[in-house]
Design a protein around this nucleic acid. Structure first.
Lengths: 190, 190, 190, 190
DNA sequence: TATGAATGAGGATTCATTCAT
DNA sequence: CATGAATGAATCCTCATTCAT
């Protein structure tokens, strides 16, 4: 209701931040971010009270964007494996489609400037995946791995898979399959 | 003649860099690193011509330290699985014993200030693991994954495992085993 | 909108630079220049992107200030000698009135930090004098000296004259006359 | 008697200083000068107690080198004009043969780091020329210019002449003649 | 005496943030 | 609310000089 144009500029700043942070790291200057976003140096601070706040919000927005992608058209009635496969597919597609966002998520995930709270909140965005794992554990398909561990494994394997997909785009599809295969075998009961 | 460049100071600077970069990120000031190392601000630059050079050398020294740890007492005559298990064990132990070094390696691995050359050289330090995978592929134990992919999977799974070990030290041993189990199943033929 | 870049501050910085460079040479610190100009250390760099740029702009501004002084009330209809005498007079007056600017011009003229382009542009400011010499050559008054050479001679003789005027202010008028006399005889046909 | 090898190193340092100061200005680092001279960074300070001292000694040594060149084979029995012409010739030749030394002399002559005493001493090196002017004045050939002024005029005109000679080496001889011609007419009675 | 590592003050420049316009 | 000039602490790096070897 307030801030009519604001929404646009807010987004423009986040988008500019993604681009510059992907290129130059977390130390990308606010001035440059503002410029790329098409707003004045000082305006950035009417949308974000400080650079740290910008970084935290950016982190959360990326996490939730990814989460939305994953939960979109999520098949509720399939088998566990198929549902995990769907999630994997979407995750990997999103990551390959948005390499800068992926890089920035990783960068921010390691930065001291993103608070523990933000990191925890970011994790929660993946509560659904976690839940899947729990359910899976309960139906006995998971070889006794703690569910959070299994979820984390999915995360890293997907990331590694994306690295290879990005490096060898022609083999992308193959890597995606190999990756899921590895994941499923890592996690599932024989 | 003249005072020789002290090996101790060189090491002290690298050690101080590890500590501060783990805490504050790559942007930890050279002045603070020097102070923590017990040398004058300017002395840092007699050992490293620039901060970038320091970061690159630090990255390489960590990679090679890890490599040395892994190659130490490496069992050449065991089965593939046992040899991989040994490597896993040592990797994970090293990482848990040196959480700051682990963090810094990850941070530097993502930093634009570490050159591609350094990153490539860092990879080579793991040529032996890679070789293991190749050999494994040839004896048919690996389920068709490209060897470099398998090696990368080992790396990330170990990292994720260490995260959990660090978070829940009491379950450390259990996580290590779960981790290797997951890795082996991810990679090996059924 | 926003505070416009202040012409006053721009000038104040240049003026402060003249003062400090006259006293301490080209190595006068930007911080001290800023302070003397009454602006913050960082503000200097909103007016000049770098110290080199400041030095170059300062050089050009001094050259053009001198040029304007010389071209002011320039008598177009007098004899060649009278017009040269006018230019000489004004040059020498300006130099004696602004000893610091004169010193700084000389200092910058010798500095590697002032680009060849700036030096060339500075020369052009004296194109009019040069033109006079050409014209003079054509009317046969000049004893066969290349015009640029004659113009340069005027420059140095004037400088030397000013040195003596500054050293013995009471004889200033006399030196000025002696100087022009020397110049005219150096250059003119007998 | 002490310092056997010293003499060489002393000279080597001065020579290196000429080269680097010509290229980089008075701020050329002592470390670089030492290196170019083939001595250790610290050794420079056993030959010159400080950089300022080095600069002052360098200034004086250049002045006296030039003076020696000028006084060498000086014709005592010629006419005033011929003797001045000889001095001019030698000066100009020296300057053209040693452009770096010439540049450095000029640079140091303007530097705050060269003391007034050194500058005064440097002037005295030209006492002979000055004396010539005095004598000349007394014999009525000089058009009433104060002798020191006349001597200074000779100095600057020679410098300007050398600039042109350096710029157009093919016309060097011609410029040298033009220059002396201009000087003689500037100074001499008609 | 020669060497070059050690020192730390000083220098140019950057940058998050504030605030006058 | 938008703008971008203003600020000065913080940063990386240089350099004359000292001093251990």
């Amino acid at each position: 209701m307030a801030r009519p144009k604001s929404e646009d500029k807010h987004k423009a700043i986040l988008a500019a931040a993604v681009e510059l942070i992907a290129e130059q790291g977390v130390s990308a200057p606010t001035a440059r971010i503002a410029k790329l976003a098409g707003v004045a140096e000082g305006s950035l601070f009417t949308y974000f009270p400080s650079k740290d706040e910008l970084l935290n919000q950016l982190y959360l927005s990326l996490k939730s964007e990814l989460r939305e992608a994953m939960m979109n058209r999520y098949p509720r009635k399939e088998s566990t494996k198929n549902r995990l496969h769907h999630a994997w597919q979407v995750y990997v597609e999103w990551g390959v489609a948005h390499p800068q966002k992926r890089k920035v998520m990783a960068l921010l995930g390691m930065s001291e400037r993103v608070s523990k709270e933000s990191k925890a909140a970011g994790m929660e965005a993946f509560a659904d995946i976690n839940a899947l794992m729990h359910e899976k554990g309960s139906d006995g398909a998971m070889r006794g791995h703690p569910p959070a561990f299994a979820a984390a494994i999915m995360g890293t394997l997907a990331e590694t898979t994306m690295d290879f997909m990005a490096r060898e785009p022609k083999q992308a599809q193959r890597y995606s399959e190999h990756g899921f295969d590895a994941f499923w075998n890592a996690i599932a009961k024989k």
